[in-house]
Design a binder for these strands. Sequence first.
DNA 1: GTATGATTGAAACGTTCGTATGAGTGAGTC
DNA 2: GACTCACTCATACGAACGTTTCAATCATAC
Lengths: 215, 215
Amino acid sequence: MNATKEKILDAAEGLFAEHGFGATSLRQITAQAGVNLAAINYHFRSKDALIQAVFSRRIGPMNEKRLAMLDACEAENANGPLPLVPVLRAFVVPIFELCRELGDRGRSFRRLMGRMYVEPGDTVRKILFEQMQIIAGRFIAAFQRSLPHLPMVELLWRIHFCIGVISHTLAGTNHLEVVSKGLCDPFDTEATTERVVAFLVAGMRAPLPAMPTRS
Amino acid sequence: MNATKEKILDAAEGLFAEHGFGATSLRQITAQAGVNLAAINYHFRSKDALIQAVFSRRIGPMNEKRLAMLDACEAENANGPLPLVPVLRAFVVPIFELCRELGDRGRSFRRLMGRMYVEPGDTVRKILFEQMQIIAGRFIAAFQRSLPHLPMVELLWRIHFCIGVISHTLAGTNHLEVVSKGLCDPFDTEATTERVVAFLVAGMRAPLPAMPTRS
DNA sequence: GTATGATTGAAACGTTCGTATGAGTGAGTC
DNA sequence: GACTCACTCATACGAACGTTTCAATCATAC
């Protein structure tokens, strides 16, 4: 790929993570990348297209890995119940692994990923929907096989909660570090992954809540 | 309070929730509120101060309610272990209750609250830190009494996860509605609260994760 | 009624934004 | 050497931004 294009993507990823999409100007990006302002509108068409490119560079490979892990899990348990833990791991692990592989750049990517779920505006929303469509069906079906007693409504809510934990952990504002006075290290990726999985496994297996009687 | 001031706060709350802080202009706000543009800089000093005002109008009462519920719980269990569920409820319930009380306006406030945890920029970050300081210590201590076997590091991580679930549930992008094809209703506040509590109770009580052996 | 202080109005300020333009550069082909 | 084509550059455009200014308006107390 063109070197300028990549420099732009790298700079944009970092600045978007730091300041958000709206608050990051194309001029900041080109300044940090050390390229000309017009290069963005040459290599990408617009700011929106740049945002899209920043995401798709990473998300595609990540979701492939997720599906690969899910495939492996389903293959190993073709004729029986699907154990919950590996399904959950297929959902959780690749995203943290990708962050670790990216090294220092992973810190930016984490924040971006965490933020994309709450980002207003159609641009990011659209990207998220497209990427979700690809894996949502597969994982819902897998979770259903793992937790067959759980009504669909409850299952979907709990997957929603899982995404919340993952997203918030990735977003990694420094609140946790501050509150814990450095005790908790969000960048110890492997330990964080295990903690997340343990929490989510328990949550998914929680007894059904007592529903309030509707008046 | 001045009627203009309140009209501005209402309009700002809705637009901030819909489009985010950066993407909402003061002109949009004054147009929606039906007041003059200069009114914002007269009643508040700046856009940042307006953002601050939008939040503090709601968060103060909410945290008071949280602490009140925690007080009650601690009073009832002065001489014994603190049960987990009421502590968690004190943490979770007031925020959902506030959203319900606010009616239609609660939908905007929910999104705002959910987003503030991931919002970039010093303005929101600072507000969040100030408000957190008030209740963080109290709740950490309470959770520690409820889960005395849990090491502090794990406890803090799990509180972090809880905030993730709450924040993501509040942020309430319509992903869940879309995926569930309307099966899940995020605005059934009471049922949502029970589901969140059930999930979080189980997560908090999860067995300790097997930590990876550090190489 | 008139003076006073708080509030609102219309208009403008300077800045920065995303985007567009057209000239310039440099490697590769004939 | 002339041509091509992908790319980079400096610069400009119009629009929208947050903020400011100052005159007009209003309620209220004297």
